[in-house]
């Protein structure tokens, strides 16, 4: 039933594979030390020795971008996991709990929806202080309401389906129905949502780092690198261009893959 992959999808999968390699074993792609400074060769433009150029302290940007992949992807994945996890709990409560609970959670979600996500994340960081962990949680929290709405509708779709009724007629209890029917049937949509969400989370986490609220320099994280390069953007474009390119690449690749999964799920 799976459609043949188009060239864009193949490119997306290849990009993700490369990013995963960079995240898991950065030393393979860039054996150097991302923090090693070399003041003599600062601000060098891209060359054979430094494909992405160097920064103000002479650190190799290519090495830093590769080594930053892990942090950026991890933040993106963790934030998405937090968002989806919360949303799943909410969605199941709303879909299976008593009617007042559904009403209550739905209203709360709608109120949260009224805030722009990033604003909500900023608010959270203002309260709990900046840092990688808080910014991850903040991104996760702020994406949760969107997921929760979709998951709730999916849960309700399955809960009211004839096959769930058939399971009731066979004498299955509520837990068994959720575990055997609802979760597996919601999982497909969930997986698509997660894949689509990772890109967004990476962008948001980088935005927070850029604002100095997430990872802080000299850590090799894409958002933080963008932030550091901002001062020199007029003269040394490569300092911001390459980390930015990777943010865009990773977000685009995961989103493309998510879209393609979504179409496959719909088609089947």
């Amino acid at each position: 039933m799976v459609r043949r992959l188009g060239p864009l999808e193949v490119a997306a999968v290849a990009t993700i594979a490369l990013l995963a390699l960079a995240a898991l074993a950065p030393g393979v792609l860039a054996p150097g030390d991302p923090l090693a400074i070399d003041p003599l060769s600062s601000f060098e433009s891209p060359s054979f020795a430094h494909p992405f150029g160097t920064d103000e302290s002479g650190r190799d940007i290519y090495t830093r971008v590769v080594h930053g992949t892990g942090a950026s992807l991890l933040i993106g994945l963790a934030a998405t996991a937090i968002g989806i996890g919360l949303a799943l709990a909410f969605g199941l409560l709303a879909g299976f709990g008593p009617r007042w609970l559904d009403f209550g959670t739905t209203r709360v979600i709608e109120v949260l929806f009224a805030f722009p996500g990033l604003l909500f994340a900023l608010l959270f960081i203002v309260v709990y202080g900046p840092g990688v962990v808080t910014s991850t949680i903040a991104v996760g929290l702020s994406t949760a309401p969107g997921y929760a709405r979709i998951i709730r509708s999916q849960v309700i779709r399955v809960r009211t389906s004839p096959y769930l009724e058939a399971a009731t007629v066979l004498g299955r209890g509520r837990t068994a129905r959720i575990v055997r029917h609802v979760l597996p049937n919601v999982a497909g949509a969930l997986f698509v949502l997660a894949t689509l969400g990772i890109g967004q989370s990476i962008v948001w986490a980088s935005s927070l780092s850029y604002l100095g609220l997430g990872a802080v320099p000299p850590a090799a994280e894409w958002g933080a690198m963008l932030s550091a390069g901002r001062t020199y953007i007029a003269s040394f474009w490569w300092m911001t261009f390459f980390p930015g390119l990777f943010i865009v690449l990773s977000a685009a690749a995961t989103t493309l893959l998510g879209r393609s999964l979504q179409q496959n799920v719909r088609a089947s």
Binding site: P162, Y163, A166, A167, V169, L170, G171, P184, N185
Partner: peptide, 23 residues
């Protein structure tokens, strides 16, 4: 309380397909 007796009373529907878990 009903669950004990549930297996003793079954059902078939007009739309058999939608009464099966699609997975």
């Amino acid at each position: 309380e009903r669950r004990r007796l549930r297996p003793r009373i079954g059902a078939i529907y007009q739309d058999a397909l939608s009464s099966f878990d699609p997975r």
